[in-house]
């Protein structure tokens, strides 16, 4: 009986947070889905979706979103793995490095977009990126020229990874610190090289944390907005929502695209959660 009372107060304390989240995220999400099947005359229709699937905008922006997400995740995990590995070692200047690599995490997305943007680092000709390439003697691409798809994607993905790699790195680091050092010592004695230790010990023991970082980042990649608005001359799902939202006749289309975005995110999170429960069992 006492236990029940304890739990009861605990629930009461949590309640405001739950109500808040329900009111400000679940309710609007359902509203968006509902509105996506509406017309100005309040009938239930599929025409918003039909219109979207007939055109090329939606297809292109889904494709772009997927390309950007995959490439950004690849870069972020690669660099974050290097950072986390470095932070597992002891060396002079570690304190400085520990703070230094985190700084982009605090820099506003809009500031990062501006510095990397059209006017500065990735300017179409002669930006800071090209200035460096020029001094090294490498060819200089036109980063934000819409005809240059690969470099458009690269520009966005590099800027986005600049800001977000620290989060991935600290999650992976948290995972690495849970692996007992004895395993590595034993493997080294058995003659396992650095690469085989990484593949056979680090990666499998990290799978849980990799999944967590994948969810956090994967979902955020689908949600990139300000940066794409600045740096990417093509549309991704979020910027497509915004472009329909701005025009009075297409509000319901913006709801429909927003719903598709939502569906992708729910799908992605579910897949990663499934992977996680599978990797924990095996």
């Amino acid at each position: 009986m006492f236990r029940w009372k304890e739990d009861y107060t605990a629930y009461l304390l949590i309640l405001p947070a739950i109500v808040y989240v329900a009111f400000f995220s679940f309710v609007p999400s359902i509203q968006a889905v509902y509105e996506s099947f509406q017309t100005p005359s309040k009938q239930f229709v599929l025409s918003n979706y039909q219109l979207l699937f007939q055109g090329t905008d939606l297809r292109n922006s889904i494709y772009n979103t997927v390309v950007v997400t995959l490439l950004a995740l690849a870069i972020q995990f690669l660099v974050a793995m290097v950072i986390a590995t470095i932070l597992m070692k002891e060396f002079r200047g570690k304190n400085f490095f520990q703070v230094g690599f985190m700084i982009p995490f605090g820099v506003a997305t809009i500031v990062a977009s501006y510095v990397f943007g059209n006017d500065n680092i990735f300017a179409i000709s002669g930006g800071y990126a090209n200035t460096i390439l020029h001094y090294i003697g490498l060819p200089q691409p036109q980063w934000i020229n819409p005809n240059n798809y690969i470099f458009n994607v690269l520009g966005l993905v590099i800027a986005d990874s600049w800001k977000n790699t620290p989060i991935v790195a600290i999650v992976l680091l948290a995972g690495m610190t849970t692996i007992p050092p004895d395993i590595y010592a034993a493997a080294t004695v058995d003659g396992a090289g650095a690469i085989s230790r990484f593949l056979r010990i680090t990666l499998p023991n990290l799978s849980n944390y990799i999944a967590i970082a994948l969810i956090i980042r994967g979902v955020s990649e689908f949600n990139i907005f300000a940066m794409a608005q600045f740096l990417f001359p093509h549309k991704i799902l979020t910027t497509l929502v915004f472009s329909y939202y701005g025009i009075s006749g297409t509000t319901y289309l913006s709801y429909a695209v927003a719903t598709i975005l939502l569906a992708f995110i729910v799908l992605f999170s579910t897949l990663v959660l499934l992977y996680r429960s599978w990797s924990q069992k095996s």
Binding site: E6, D7, T9, A10, Y11, I14, A17, I18, V21, A22, F24, S25, F26, V27, P28, S29, Q31, A32, E35, I215, V219, F222, N223, F225, T238, V241, F242, Y245, T251, S254, Y255, A258, T259, L261, L262, I265, S269
Partner: peptide, 29 residues
Amino acid sequence: RLKPKIASIISTTLFFANMLPSVTIAIPI
């Protein structure tokens, strides 16, 4: 103060809410 299992369900709900796209939520809000 809650049992870990129940606490974890509630945390996951909060986490999930955090994942919903701002763009989707912003229009109805």
